[in-house]
Write a protein that binds this DNA or RNA. Structure first.
Length: 417
RNA sequence: GACUCAGUAGCUCAGCAGGUAGAGCACAUCCCUUUUAAGGAUGGGGUCCUGGGUUCGAAUCCCAGCUGAGUCA
């Protein structure tokens, strides 16, 4: 390139390039500033890269009921976000999306719990709010792109005259948040930028400190995004009634016997679904406050002692209002060889790679945020996608998303049934 | 009715050749973590069934009572 510029014959090209730089307006990016370090540093980096950057803070939740005391309010976050924007010399706006957030995330959450499933509201928040409603707000402001502080990367390439976007894991293996974006589509991805995805968390902290951003030492946010850290049972009790029911212990040998199924396609039904425990499969050992407050793999909150090893929830039945438990970390009922995603729930980010009926492929799968990837065989059938893990997975939970990766690329995802 | 065994933290139990108590589970707090869980660390908890007695001293020995389980009739 440099050589070309010094070459007299390229003078024309050079002129055209310069012209285009000055005549073309700077690309405009709206960054979702949350008041945390990650989005602050993302904003700074965008500015460094020469974008015309505007900060937009979104309010998604006003209600504080159920929120743990000592947590920050959105007012605190907005104030700090504004300080960051000021420091970086960029326009700052606030948008209130709480009505949409309630309808599209919180209502979904309650609905799922009422069905005895365990939703992932943050995956929905990204699909429905940040990269939909919020994205549209950004476009209204004239943005070419929307940026967030997520730890993930995007890559694009041309294929058959079309641009294909890839969602890649964040470089920091400890912070990778690609999973939370597992429900995005090509259109959403095409307008997204993830400026901190190639950095390690300590580097982000360092940049924030060097730039003296007000968020440099701010603690990372946790809990349901926007709602904050809540005590879930009491949060859920706003809408879900407490109803005492029986806790039934499933003996390990019973579960072991039921799991003795060969890993062949004929047995998909048995391999990929939760075993439907019945009250007579074990004995009553206590009471709970409502089956919909518990989730698979849960240990805390049972309030049942007297066992040599801890008790874990291995199944819930909201209709009968029963929760099934097993004793010991390695209880066989805690492990399952596979899972199933019904056809309507299958989502490919890489639509060009979608599997066809009858097809079989090998990918790596993650069944919840921060779970290690597990080598898995995927079988596409008319009714859905059957997945069989090389190693049995612990605590497969309906309502959570299974996301399949090819190396560092997240190809698709779907809700576990 | 007689006999045997048991009655120790919220639960299941250990301690019992006498010197004022431990473990696991449960629970709480903190750490980790933008879901839910899990995981890690720390911690709070006991009239040792009741009443007598022996002893310098009893959860530990003796007696009586109460409660529970079982055996025999």
């Amino acid at each position: 390139m440099t050589g070309c510029f010094s070459d007299p014959c390229c003078k024309h090209a050079r002129f055209v390039l310069l012209l285009s730089v000055y005549s073309q307006r700077m690309e405009k990016v709206v960054i979702g500033l949350s008041g945390g370090v990650d989005s602050s540093v993302a904003a700074y980096l965008l500015k460094q890269q020469g974008y015309d950057v505007t900060a937009l803070f979104m309010i998604n939740w006003h209600d504080r009921t159920g929120t743990l005391t000592g947590q920050c309010t959105w007012e605190d976050d907005a104030l700090i976000a504004e300080m960051v924007a000021k420091k970086l010399d960029m326009p700052f706006h606030i948008v209130d999306l709480s009505k949409d957030y309630k309808q599209r995330v919180v209502d979904y959450m309650f609905d799922e719990y009422s069905k005895g499933r365990t939703p992932n509201p943050d995956v929905l928040c990204n699909r429905e709010i940040k990269f939909d409603i919020f994205l549209n707000e950004c476009l209204k402001l004239g943005a070419d792109y929307v940026a967030t502080g997520h730890y993930c990367r995007k890559s694009s390439f041309a294929h058959d005259g079309k641009t294909i976007h890839q969602l890649l894991a964040g470089t920091d293996p400890n912070k990778d948040q690609s999973y939370f974006l597992c429900q995005l589509n090509q259109d959403q991805l095409s307008k997204s930028l993830f400026p901190v995805g190639g950095l390690l968390k300590p580097e982000v902290r360092r940049i924030a400190a060097e730039q003296q951003l007000p968020t440099a030492t701010r603690k990372d946010s946790q809990g349901i995004c926007f709602v904050g850290k809540v005590d879930l049972p009491s949060f859920l009790q706003q809408q879900l009634q407490a109803r005492t029911g029986n806790v039934i212990e499933i003996p390990a040998d019973f579960a072991e016997k039921k799991k003795n199924v060969e890993k062949i396609p004929d047995n998909f039904k048995k391999l990929c679904f939760a075993y439907p425990y019945k009250p007579w499969n074990g004995k009553v050992i206590g009471e709970h406050r409502g089956a919909h407050f518990y989730t698979i793999g849960q240990r805390k909150g049972l309030s049942i002692g007297g066992h040599a090893d801890p008790l874990f929830v291995v199944g819930t039945d909201v209709k009968r209002n029963i929760i099934y438990v097993g004793e010991g970390t390695e209880h066989p009922a805690l492990y399952r060889p596979g899972l199933f995603i019904p056809t309507p729930e299958i989502h490919w980010i890489r639509t060009d790679l979608a599997m066809k009926d009858g097809e079989t492929r090998h990918y790596e799968v993650r069944i919840r945020y921060r779970q290690p990837l597990e080598k898995t065989t995927l079988y596409q059938r008319k009714e859905g996608l059957y997945m069989i893990f090389d190693q049995e997975q612990r605590g497969i939970t309906a309502g959570q998303f299974a996301a399949w990766y090819d190396g560092e690329e997240l190809l698709g995802s779907g809700v576990i049934i």
